[in-house]
Simulated scan of single mutants.
Amino acid sequence: MTEILSDSEADGRLGAGWTRTGAVISREVELASFPQAIEVVNRVAELAETADHHPDIDIRWRTLTFRLSTHSAGGLTAKDFDLAAEIDAVLAAL
């Protein structure tokens, strides 16, 4: 099983734009258009499938909210922060 990170470990791994509320990290971004937002969702979906770790994604027109937590472990793990970094890379490539 994947090891749950302590609060201080989780806080130390938060990337720019990410916030932590308990056992969930989240990031909200606004894209230039609805099609661009869907393009980002599709790219993240491919990464999530490869990692077998799936974020909650809320789509509100051009605004996307990503939420990550390792539900099977009952908290935040390295898997959450690894996928968050991959999401950041997708956004940076726009």
Results as ranks from 00 to 15, higher is better:
residue 1 M to F: 14
residue 2 T to Y: 12
residue 3 E to N: 11
residue 3 E to A: 15
residue 4 I to P: 06
residue 6 S to W: 04
residue 6 S to T: 15
residue 7 D to Q: 13
residue 7 D to F: 06
residue 7 D to T: 14
residue 7 D to R: 07
residue 7 D to Y: 04
residue 8 S to L: 08
residue 9 E to W: 00
residue 10 A to W: 09
residue 11 D to G: 13
residue 11 D to F: 02
residue 12 G to E: 08
residue 13 R to M: 15
residue 13 R to N: 07
residue 14 L to C: 15
residue 14 L to Q: 11
residue 15 G to T: 09
residue 15 G to W: 01
residue 16 A to T: 14
residue 16 A to Y: 11
residue 16 A to N: 14
residue 17 G to V: 04
residue 17 G to M: 00
residue 19 T to D: 12
residue 19 T to F: 02
residue 21 T to S: 14
residue 21 T to Y: 06
residue 22 G to Y: 11
residue 22 G to R: 06
residue 23 A to I: 07
residue 24 V to P: 02
residue 24 V to L: 01
residue 24 V to F: 00
residue 24 V to T: 08
residue 25 I to Q: 01
residue 26 S to H: 03
residue 26 S to L: 05
residue 26 S to G: 12
residue 27 R to D: 03
residue 27 R to E: 00
residue 27 R to H: 02
residue 28 E to Y: 01
residue 29 V to G: 07
residue 29 V to H: 13
residue 29 V to P: 03
residue 29 V to S: 05
residue 30 E to D: 11
residue 30 E to H: 06
residue 30 E to L: 02
residue 33 S to M: 06
residue 33 S to Y: 02
residue 33 S to K: 10
residue 35 P to K: 05
residue 37 A to Q: 05
residue 38 I to E: 03
residue 39 E to R: 10
residue 40 V to E: 01
residue 40 V to W: 01
residue 42 N to C: 04
residue 45 A to Q: 05
residue 46 E to A: 12
residue 47 L to S: 10
residue 47 L to A: 04
residue 47 L to Q: 04
residue 48 A to R: 03
residue 49 E to V: 02
residue 50 T to N: 11
residue 51 A to M: 09
residue 52 D to Y: 02
residue 52 D to P: 04
residue 54 H to G: 12
residue 54 H to D: 09
residue 54 H to F: 09
residue 55 P to H: 12
residue 56 D to M: 10
residue 57 I to L: 12
residue 57 I to V: 15
residue 58 D to K: 13
residue 61 W to G: 05
residue 63 T to Y: 01
residue 65 T to W: 06
residue 65 T to V: 07
residue 65 T to L: 11
residue 66 F to R: 03
residue 67 R to G: 00
residue 68 L to Y: 11
residue 68 L to E: 05
residue 68 L to P: 07
residue 69 S to G: 13
residue 69 S to D: 10
residue 70 T to G: 13
residue 70 T to Q: 10
residue 71 H to Q: 11
residue 73 A to G: 10
residue 75 G to K: 08
residue 76 L to E: 06
residue 77 T to D: 11
residue 78 A to R: 13
residue 78 A to I: 10
residue 79 K to P: 12
residue 80 D to L: 05
residue 80 D to E: 05
residue 81 F to E: 04
residue 84 A to D: 08
residue 85 A to L: 10
residue 86 E to R: 15
residue 87 I to H: 08
residue 87 I to N: 00
residue 87 I to Q: 01
residue 87 I to G: 04
residue 88 D to F: 04
residue 88 D to P: 12
residue 89 A to G: 02
residue 89 A to L: 05
residue 90 V to E: 00
residue 91 L to S: 00
residue 92 A to C: 06
residue 92 A to W: 01
residue 92 A to G: 00
residue 93 A to S: 15
residue 93 A to C: 01
residue 94 L to E: 07
